[in-house]
Amino acid sequence: MLQERFWTMLKQALENQGKAVTIYGGKSVKVISQNYYQNSKGNKNIGLKYPVGQYASMNICMYINLYSWVHYGLRVCDEQGNAINRQDIKSDVASSLSEGNAVANKKDDWIVCYYNDEQRA
């Protein structure tokens, strides 16, 4: 399956760069690739994530997500690795980044979120 190959290759490339990558939306690349097509529309958030730093003693993680589009961005994670809403951190950090262009950018649990838009080059 093409999607499984995409996630496998991306995960391997990130790990080769020393990233501590974890899968979310399922237990393995194979499972998330299958779940995307089997889950209902509201349950299609799958992808990879890895920590990029800390802010105000909270972990900031890079998420690479598939929900209709492949998009990527930063989220605050709790001690269990779950994305959480921290408006104070979002306000502080997002102001130093270019504005996100993905729909998820407007959600409270994303600091910033992008998708590839060749029209905005």
Rank of each mutant, 00 (worst) to 15 (best):
Q87P: 02
G73D: 01
A83C: 02
Y36R: 03
A83W: 02
S96L: 15
G42R: 00
W110C: 01
G42I: 00
A94H: 01
E118P: 07
V52F: 10
I46C: 13
K44S: 03
W7Q: 08
I84P: 05
G26H: 00
D109T: 15
A102W: 09
C77R: 07
N43V: 01
L14W: 01
N45T: 07
K19W: 01
L66C: 09
G47K: 02
A83S: 12
L74Y: 07
G73Y: 08
E79M: 12
Q12E: 14
Y67N: 12
N105G: 03
P51R: 15
L66T: 04
N43E: 08
N35D: 02
N116A: 13
Q38G: 10
M62H: 07
Q3T: 13
I89Y: 02
W69H: 11
C113H: 09
Q17F: 01
I60R: 04
Q119A: 12
V21N: 01
N65W: 00
S98A: 07
N116G: 13
H71S: 08
L97A: 03
D117C: 06
T22D: 01
E118W: 06
L2A: 13
Y55R: 11
N65G: 06
K19G: 00
D78F: 13
Y50R: 05
Y63C: 09
A83L: 04
I46H: 11
V31G: 03
A20N: 12
Y67G: 04
R75F: 07
Y115E: 09
L97R: 02
N65L: 03
Y50M: 07
L97G: 05
A13R: 14
S57C: 06
